[in-house]
């Protein structure tokens, strides 16, 4: 019995020791984006304390313990994180294609530009997806523009699918997603003081992920 208790005690000691050295931490690989002056990552620890990471190669322990809440600043990036940069999926790309006033399809020249851009950017993207969001300018009211945005998104999708059918673009139709925009975008641009942009926001915003 005494021997069994001894073994249990030893195992417990090892378990506690294991917990003590286990890691839970967060490390910044890039600085906080400009304008994010409260830190790229805000930490709320289990004891209610707060911490901030804003500079590249800063690291914070998360788990409670002797050195918890300590933010370390390393001089250079830890090589163990180098692979992470390579293993991220390709960065999404986005481009803008413009409608003529009142039109719900892209003119041939804009469609050609869209096709060339797609062909240039769809390679090397496993799990490819294309998002087509169509927008309007601010003239004409909400109801009219909402319907126009829906028509534009569907029309551009149909135009792209036509070119896929003709073999000019090699994308699966199921990987295309249409997304009618809203007047909210144009309004938000006006609110930000760029009303000259909103006036001409007759645009299909295409994103490749």
């Amino acid at each position: 019995m005494r021997k069994s208790l001894g073994i249990i005690a030893c195992l417990s000691a090892f378990a506690v020791a294991g917990c003590a050295v286990s890691k839970e931490r967060v490390t910044l690989l890039a600085p906080a984006q400009s304008g994010k002056d409260i830190g790229g990552v805000v930490i709320e620890y289990d004891d209610g304390r707060m911490g901030y990471l804003g500079d590249v190669s800063q690291q914070a322990k998360l788990r409670s313990g002797k050195a918890a809440h300590l933010v370390r600043q390393y001089d250079e990036a830890d090589p163990q994180y180098a692979n992470f940069g390579n293993d991220f999926p390709s960065e999404p790309v986005r481009e803008y294609f413009y409608f003529a006033v009142g039109k719900d399809t892209l003119a041939p020249s804009e469609l050609d530009r869209l096709q060339a851009w797609l062909n240039q950017n769809i390679q090397g993207r496993p799990g490819l997806e294309i998002e087509i969001a169509a927008h309007t300018d601010v003239s004409g009211g909400v109801e009219l523009n909402t319907k126009l945005a829906e028509k534009r998104a569907a029309a551009v999708r149909a135009q792209v699918e036509e070119r896929i059918k003709a073999g000019q673009i090699t994308v699966d139709k199921d990987d295309i997603d249409e997304l009618p925009g809203s007047l909210w975008w144009a309004q938000s641009i006006i609110d930000s003081g760029q009303d000259y942009v909103a006036r001409d926001y007759r645009v299909a915003v295409v994103t490749i992920r």
Binding site: L29, Q33, G40, V41, E44, G54, R63
Partner: peptide, 12 residues
């Protein structure tokens, strides 16, 4: 043990 609020950056 913790909650991280992300404000825009790259991290591990």
């Amino acid at each position: 043990t913790s909650t991280l609020g992300v404000r825009g950056t790259t991290f591990v």
